[in-house]
Design a protein around this nucleic acid. Structure first.
Lengths: 240, 240
DNA sequence: GTCTATACACAGATAGAC
DNA sequence: GTCTATCTGTGTATAGAC
């Protein structure tokens, strides 16, 4: 699987996401016509992510949001009851989608190495498609309520555990030679997060998400697959 | 070098840092008695980092800061002329200290592998000693002015280049076998940053900074040192 | 469904007494 | 050096017209 294939398989257009948000929040949203809701949610989310990812969610005023969406303050408040609720909608949706798609791809594979590869790629591809959402989720966790912060931490641990489970499975079946699976899972997460946190850097250097995925998998391979013939070291993307 | 040694070698107590800030900002700070300035700067920085790292710098009001420091609003404003200036002082100081100490340790080593090891350790130890500063720097970059944001990005690239230079040196001298040094430097940075960004996680799992350093160096070793006898794989910290 | 107008709380910042 | 009191702008949120 590469990124182009991934994009054809999942339906994560802005409209798809907004329709899903509407379905999950029918009661909270005062406006009832799906067409209108989807159109305006799209504007609201776009604007919120744009402004917040530039200067922070706290620093974005409702007046900023009103200007950018071409919706009045009054109109905005018929899609959420407070600024904080808007924040929570974005956080929740990002988490739900990640969990669903990541699990779907991992469950489709059987052996540990295949699972590990698809997990790394799927996470990177997801964060590529929804980069502003991932960046926002990461940077605005602090601004959440205690209750919501706990959910964010649980989600962080959950994703890490997905990787840990794969590593443990691969270890007990004799495929992987790696002592500290917990720490390994942690740094895998760190590398995946760097992709969406430092996107400006990778974009400037013209590193594609496929190149990045390839690199991470090679690095991991050299660490957890200590085969004597070094079969895993067939490099393929020498650009420098 | 381990963390205990590092701590005896560098002088980075809160007082040391505040004295340095005072020296660098003699003109901007209205209060002139060093003893008083150092004492109050310590309170101001402590409080700012505490509150901001919990709920964000924007969300911290000057009244919050006044309460936490037991200084009146008026008193606070004799140490900086605006909230933004306070932010910049913290950012600038963190960068300056990092640059100075990182270079001092790296320049003391000659061969590339020793340089790489000491660079990784020094960065981790620095971020351990000044964790709130590093976390703050990372999370609040967005709130800076354009001018200051550029300095933050330059600093990010500068640190990465330190690692890139070491990797290139090691490669051209035949010590390291690694094709994509640029990407390697990037993920090294990502792993170093994870240490101070997810400190709560590592603390809960009782991972010490020395264990983390050891792990990162082993992971790197397996990637860049492809010796046939696998000499770099002498593990030493099997705790599970 | 969306708008305009407005309530009113709280922000950053300063003046002037001590 | 530090305080209290206060100025003025901006924030979130809502009421009620259309």
């Amino acid at each position: 699987m590469n990124y182009a294939e991934f994009q054809t398989q999942v339906s994560l257009s802005k409209q798809d996401i907004c329709r899903e948000v509407f379905a999950d929040n029918r009661k909270a949203i005062r406006v009832k016509k799906e067409g209108i809701v989807v159109k305006n949610l799209e504007r609201i989310f776009d604007a919120t992510l744009n402004i917040s990812n530039k200067k922070g969610f706290q620093a974005m005023s409702m007046r900023d949001l009103s200007k950018e969406t071409n919706l009045s303050m009054g109109a905005l408040y018929s899609y959420f009851s407070s600024k904080e609720e808007l924040l929570e909608m974005l956080q929740h949706q990002r988490r739900t989608i990640t969990k669903r798609i990541l699990n779907a791809y991992i469950d489709a594979e059987k052996d540990p190495l295949a699972k590990l590869k698809v997990a790394v790629r799927t996470h990177l591809y997801l964060s590529e498609t929804m980069q502003p959402w991932f960046y926002f989720s990461y940077m605005e966790t602090k601004n959440l309520s205690k209750r919501q912060q706990e959910m964010a931490i649980a989600s962080e641990i959950y994703t890490e555990k997905i990787f840990l489970d794969i590593l443990n499975q691969g270890h007990s079946q004799g495929y992987f030679q790696v002592d500290d699976r917990q720490l390994t899972a942690s740094v895998i997460k760190a590398m995946l997060q760097d992709w969406y946190l430092k996107r400006w850097k990778y974009a400037k250097r013209k590193i594609s998400v496929d190149q990045y995925a390839q690199f991470v998998l090679e690095l991991l391979g050299s660490f957890i697959l200590h085969t004597t013939n070094n079969a895993h070291r067939k490099r393929s993307h020498h650009e420098n």
